[in-house]
Design a binder for these strands. Structure first.
Lengths: 243, 243
DNA sequence: CGAGCCGTTGAGGGGATTCAAGCTCAGTGG
DNA sequence: CCACTGAGCTTGAATCCCCTCAACGGCTCG
């Protein structure tokens, strides 16, 4: 899932001033709502960070005081239950806003971990606070993102947490197709990660992957990548919904 | 779940002016952020509505243009999948805000249905828009509610959509305990409603209810009510987490 | 009273888990 | 160079949990 590195420094400008003008995800990201004048005021305070696969961005309970915009990669939201098992409750990708709780001076609600190499912009809470009073477009954009996350969570329950394992797995593939990389490949989770998303054992996940390979739904491309046959996937899903 | 009727007319004032001053849920509801002066400006536009068990408040795709504050009762958020089956993805109770999407001029994201007799305040979008520019406390409160809903959704996945059926059922009881009525009883869903929440068949739900009665976790009080033994519930959960 | 909905209980089957054994592959150190 | 190791993936066989199908009883309502 290595998207091309996104330049965050103004071309031909001051290399120290990290700004979002040239950022590819700006259109779809939080600060797309701001004009250049507003961007000029804030770019100094935004840090761009990189995380490797498996690295945590933050943990549930942390009081980080910053939100993140995802510039590249995929992250997962985890919760651990009292009996010790961990469950993945949501994914986020390119352009998504993460850690909005911080804006409300709350502790983070989930553990967030990088599924692939990840690049984020780290935005301090205070920055949004001061901007928020002036720029109502920013607040609107914020609420939009909150609602999108809520919508994601609801459809996660409806699509990935019900029905037989085969259908859940196919729906997961459908969803991973939204995070396709520039070579047209999807991120292929480890079998135990699939298990944490779909509430399966790694063995069952493995059996289903084998089945999807045999039916041509996916074709493995290395251990963490695969090519998805959209037509075969759709047909397989219809078959599941019928029989 | 019949909470005592909440007076929404100002005592000794103009009976036509439906206001929230005396509303019990005001402290915990959206407009708790406003002062009396602001309330005076808006109370004319807020309608209080009642719904019977099973009645829909709105449907996914509707463009209603209003948000709702729940004054009494329980509602469920439903999604129907392509294969026709319906799944309950979230519950909301007293004091919760419903239909925030409308503030963003979006269609409603879920079907929302009354689980018990329900009383709500219906608040037009335009009202919040005009207030929002002036009252930043309201916006803050709004975001708070958005985040709470998101948190609910995540814990729904983590608690009610994973593990063996018995544990999921016990966790549902735990959650229904949050919506306890004034007689100390919980709302007891129909068996097929439990199934839609936990992804079970009604038969399995029924067997588990029988088991909970035999172990003393619940005691039925009529067909839609039950008394919950918090201690027995906690012990049963620990037993599940262990063995 | 019959009809229909809801809840309960039983018997049998199927799908996912559990337990177990190999397998590949990358990293390590002799 | 190659055995050694460990993590992740796969596959098999047996078990168990939950579903399916079925019958029956209580209850409300037309």
């Amino acid at each position: 899932m290595s998207h091309p590195p996104i330049p965050i420094y103004r071309q031909g400008g001051h290399p120290q001033q990290a700004i979002c003008t040239a950022c590819e995800v700006r259109r779809s990201a939080l600060f797309g709502a701001l004009d250049e004048a507003a961007l000029d005021r804030i770019h100094l305070h935004i840090a761009d960070l990189a995380f490797d696969t498996g690295e945590p961005l933050y943990a549930r309970g942390d009081r980080g005081g910053a939100v993140f915009t995802l510039r590249a990669g995929i992250v997962r939201f985890e919760r651990s239950t009292e009996d010790g098992s961990r469950r993945i409750v949501r994914l986020a990708g390119r352009g998504d806003l993460i850690g909005q709780e911080a804006l409300l001076q709350q502790a983070y609600a989930d553990d967030v971990v990088a599924c692939t190499p990840v690049q984020v912009c780290r935005i301090p809470r205070s920055l949004v606070d001061t901007l928020g009073e002036a720029e109502s477009a920013l607040l609107r954009e914020l609420m939009q993102r909150w609602q999108r996350a809520l919508d994601d969570a609801a459809s996660w329950v409806a699509e990935l947490a019900m029905g037989p394992a085969r259908r859940r797995m196919l729906r997961l593939m459908l969803r991973l197709g939204d995070y396709i990389d520039e070579q047209g490949c999807i991120w292929m989770p480890r079998r135990d990660e699939m298990g944490a998303m779909l509430d399966l054992t790694p063995e069952t996940a493995s059996r289903l992957v084998t089945w999807m390979r045999q039916t041509g739904v996916i074709e493995l491309r290395g251990s963490r990548l695969a090519r998805l046959d959209a037509g075969a996937l759709r047909r397989a899903l219809e078959e599941q919904d019928a029989g």
